[in-house]
Simulated assay, not measured.
Amino acid sequence: MNLTASKLNKFLFFKLPSAFLCGVRVKEVGENKCVVSVKHRWINQNPFNSMYFAVQAMAAELSTGALVIYQIQKSGKKISMLVANNKSSFTKKATGRITFVCNDGHLIENAIHETLTTGEGQTFWMKSIGTNEKGEQVSEMDFEWSVRVK
């Protein structure tokens, strides 16, 4: 099965409805890059008239997690995945459409190879950068993923 943006958005609807209702959508997914966007609206706002940080985190996590799913499917093996840690920084109010881009797909292949070889869990950090419509960075989020053979 090829992993596509539309299949991931369908997955959101059925398995992560809060992200779907908040407007989180996958725009592009490939071997090394994933693009996810979300628009600031009433349902995902904070009291300061910008996007709530947790909505940004959902979109950013999805941009990294979709790449992990992509690489796991590519391996053809049964591998579990879990966010072990995360950190974030916010540099500007998130208003309008925010686009999160992760270009760290190349980090996953090695971790999957190691967990398949050793049977031990492997961890790695992935970064997602959120920018507004003007191209200004509004947030940067890092997720530590753990993968392990089932």
Rank of each mutant, 00 (worst) to 15 (best):
A59F: 05
V149W: 00
K77L: 08
F20K: 07
L116W: 06
K74S: 14
V55G: 01
Q56T: 02
S88I: 12
L8N: 00
W125D: 13
S146T: 12
Y52L: 10
E144V: 03
M51Y: 00
A59V: 01
K33E: 13
V83Y: 08
F53P: 05
E31F: 09
N44P: 13
I69C: 06
L16I: 14
S80W: 14
T99G: 06
S80P: 07
K27F: 03
V101P: 09
G130A: 08
V26E: 01
K134W: 11
V101M: 11
A84E: 15
C34W: 01
Y52V: 04
F13S: 11
R25Y: 07
M58Y: 02
G76M: 13
K93S: 08
M58A: 04
E28W: 04
W145P: 03
A19F: 03
N46Q: 07
H40M: 09
F20S: 06
N32K: 05
S89V: 14
K150Q: 10
C22N: 08
R97K: 15
K134S: 13
T118Y: 09
P17A: 07
L62H: 05
T115R: 00
W125K: 06
S128K: 08
T117N: 12
S37F: 01
A59W: 01
M141H: 07
M51I: 03
E109M: 12
K127L: 14
M58R: 01
F20T: 02
L82F: 09
V149M: 07
R148M: 04
K27C: 10
K15N: 15
V35C: 08
L21T: 08
K27E: 13
G96I: 07
M141N: 08
M141L: 15
G76D: 15
R41Y: 08
I69E: 14
V26P: 07
A54H: 10
A19E: 02
S88K: 09
R41T: 13
H40N: 10
A94E: 03
F100N: 02
M141K: 06
G119D: 11
S88L: 15
N46H: 04
Q71C: 10
I129G: 02
C102A: 09
N49G: 06
M1S: 14
N110Y: 10
V24Y: 00
K15S: 12
R25K: 15
N9L: 12
S88D: 14
I72T: 01
S128W: 08
K10L: 15
